[in-house]
């Protein structure tokens, strides 16, 4: 009897917490969604309602018809995908190398990865601009990918390294005995076991490239390479904020990320059931 009531209690508490947190996460979003469906005059109404009095899709239409926005969208998609893949691979190799091998300069190098995060952004803006200009990568996709790689590395390398550290060397030894080289061992043994962290790192890299504002503003200010996050800033001008269109564009912009994440989440949660540690 006691255990049963305990479980019911636990369940109820879980549900209540769930609802509160979900509401906290969702409500501002809902407000944004509601705003995107309102016309200019109703947006500022003094009796705001969650469900608009006159639902209008003119904001969404305006965004779709805006060829520049579609162009920025495509840029953002390409940059985010490329950046995610590049970051995952480079960070995985780096994390594996730092974790499994000892070589001179290991500790200083590992710590120096962190510096890019410690240095204030403003100390990076002009030097980055100069470096990219010298490499002729200003206003290009590879240029931004490089910047996102560097900015993301402190988290991605350190996180993956921590995860790989926790995997006992015995697991790989079995593979070595079978004649696997380090690369094979990495991909066939280690990767399945770090899948959750890898997926998390991938999502982080994706969001970084998707939402970042200051770097693309400065380093990819050309119309042809502009990203969606910068494009959103165009809805704010000196006459005020065009809420309706900005929210419509922002919600449309969030959809791909949400899809990607719902998919990637499965890897995070399921990952551990395969390739479990033996013994």
């Amino acid at each position: 009897m006691n255990r049963k009531t305990k479980r019911i209690l636990l369940r109820t508490v879980t549900y209540i917490l769930c609802i509160i947190i979900a509401a906290f996460a969702l409500l501002p979003f809902l407000w944004g969604l509601s705003t995107s469906l309102k016309d200019n005059v109703e947006v500022y109404s003094l009796n705001p309602t969650l469900i608009p009095k006159n639902i209008t899709f003119e904001n969404y239409k305006a965004v779709f018809h805006d060829t520049s926005m579609m162009h920025y969208f495509r840029n953002s998609v390409v940059i985010a995908l490329v950046s995610t893949l590049v970051t995952i691979f480079v960070s995985l190799f780096a994390a594996y190398g730092f974790s499994r091998y000892r070589f001179p300069g290991r500790a200083p190098l590992l710590t120096s990865i962190l510096f890019i995060r410690v240095l204030p952004r403003v100390c990076l803006l002009v030097p980055f601009y100069v470096i990219l200009a010298n490499m002729r990568l200003v206003n290009t996709i590879p240029g931004l990918v490089l910047v996102y790689l560097i900015v993301g590395m402190p988290l991605t390398v350190w996180l993956l390294k921590g995860y790989i550290d926790a995997i006992p060397i015995e697991v790989e030894e079995a593979a070595f005995v079978d004649g696997c080289g380090p690369l094979k061992s990495l991909f066939l043994v280690v990767v399945p076991m770090v899948a959750p962290a890898l997926a998390a790192v991938g999502m982080f890299a994706f969001i970084l490239a998707w939402n970042e504002f200051l770097f693309p503003l400065l380093l990819a200010s050309d119309e042809s390479s502009r990203t969606l996050s910068v494009g959103l800033a165009f809805y704010i001008d000196e006459t005020g904020i065009q809420w309706g269109q900005m929210m419509a564009a922002s919600i449309l912009m969030s959809l791909p990320a949400i899809c990607v994440f719902s998919y990637a989440q499965k890897y995070i949660i399921k990952g551990m059931s395969e390739g479990a540690v033996k013994g």
Partner: peptide
Amino acid sequence: ELQPIANYQDNATSAILG
């Protein structure tokens, strides 16, 4: 090249300095 008003001055400054 149109620029948003957000961070306009930083944008211009970085570009000039770079």
